[in-house]
Design a protein around this nucleic acid. Structure first.
Ligand SMILES: [Mn+2]
Ligand SMILES: [Mn+2]
Ligand SMILES: [Mn+2]
Ligand SMILES: [Mn+2]
Lengths: 220, 220
DNA sequence: CCATAAAGTTTGAGTCGTCAAACTTTAGTT
DNA sequence: AACTAAAGTTTGACGACTCAAACTTTATGG
């Protein structure tokens, strides 16, 4: 069984690989994500490589092996099911559940996880719109494109918020933007550095390009 | 914040102190409970003493300080609320939830614990009848006496099962004996080494003295 | 009151996960 | 091609937790 620490590294590597265009995770970003120094990250990567969970050519990027990917998806599944439970059953705040799930994800047995999943009605996404990997390890990725990519006049439905930062999530929720919410693209600035939305039965919101790029949507 | 390991030791010390007539925990029993060698237990006790969580005169028994007791009751509260959730909401088996709670108890924030408690309707006991300490650290102990102490003809109500062992719990459940179940003491053997109960609207069960001493009941 | 077993302690060593700081490699300027 | 900053690695050290095995103290029952 992978330790809590190992699970955290593996999950972080998975997420970073998804994010980077090269499909590889860098040591510095990994260290930052896990909250350790880069030296520590290097030595952990070595151990992960020894246990065949990652491939890590010297002085180059880290990628997961099939085994590593299996673990990552497993942890991600637990994480997202827990987040769903915390929001939909315990009514915890959208912005707070990530940290909580960060700890709980390491303490659930497969059986309990399945019961929880059943109790929740086998949800396919978590409260942020992140897809929940199936028990067998399949995920649907990229269910929308960045808000910043839509043109004026587009009628969109928010699909996914791709950031776990509390302050950002608070801001997004404040604006009324949650998965399943519909909105009209009211304006896109000439330089493309901001976008204004009118939320259906809600207010208008202006987002910076960087904020808009972290919110995925699709045409209604 | 106390580590997971420290929480486990402290909780075990609390339980052992409750069990022993002297009110002190022995090193060998503690080691056994936590699952380490006695040398390991000794060195942990030293560290706990240094952080003022226990009092441990050399070559003598261990007791909790006020600080230690606070932590113990806190962990116990988490443990029992989680057990209640696992049984009453997720329908997990009575006999399985202890191990699961053993891990989850270290991963719940106070806020989430309170939401869970609220969701469950602020239960006062867990599925085994163990009292749940209040958030401020109060517990009702000894809400019944051992089944073995009742006389023939007594009409009793099961209150609490004082053992977490899976096999024992399976056996007890098999017999239909759960907290709140009522039964008649049908017979007590002359030597007092066994007791026969007739469970209300159920079958008759004969328990050994040692089994009966781990089941608490009170007169109906 | 003493021998012996049980309880408790000490010692030396190992793993895991971490840091700071020195070092090496890589990649992007000029 | 040479310089430099960023990325990555190595080294030495440490704390938390553990074990096995040798050792000491305590209890007790003959
Ligand atoms: Mn985590
Ligand atoms: Mn999420
Ligand atoms: Mn535990
Ligand atoms: Mn219990």
């Amino acid at each position: 069984m992978a330790s809590e620490t190992v699970e955290n590294y593996i999950k972080a590597i998975y997420v970073l690989c998804r994010e980077s265009p090269s499909g590889e995770a860098g040591v510095v970003r990994l260290a930052q994500e896990v909250g350790v120094t880069k030296g520590t990250a290097t030595s952990m990567i070595k151990r992960l490589a020894k246990s065949k969970l990652v491939k890590a050519p010297r002085y180059s990027g880290v990628t997961l092996t099939a085994m590593g990917k299996k673990i990552a998806l497993d942890v991600l599944r637990r994480h997202r099911i827990i987040e769903t439970f915390l929001v939909s059953t315990l009514n915890l705040d959208w912005a707070d559940v990530h940290e909580e799930a960060e700890r709980l994800e390491h303490a659930l047995s497969p059986r309990t996880l399945d019961r929880l999943d059943e109790f929740l009605g086998r949800p396919s996404t978590d409260p942020h719109g992140d897809p929940i990997p199936s028990a067998s390890g399949k995920v649907l990725e990229l269910r929308g494109k960045a808000l910043s990519a839509f043109a004026r006049g587009a009628k969109v439905e928010i699909v996914q918020i791709m950031d776990q930062d509390r302050a950002f999530l608070k801001f997004v929720a404040q604006s009324g933007l949650k998965p399943r919410v519909r909105a009209l693209v009211q304006d896109v600035s000439a330089q493309g550095d901001s976008i204004t939305l009118r939320v259906t039965r809600g207010k208008s919101v202006t987002l910076s390009r960087s904020a808009a790029s972290k919110i995925l949507a699709r045409l209604q």
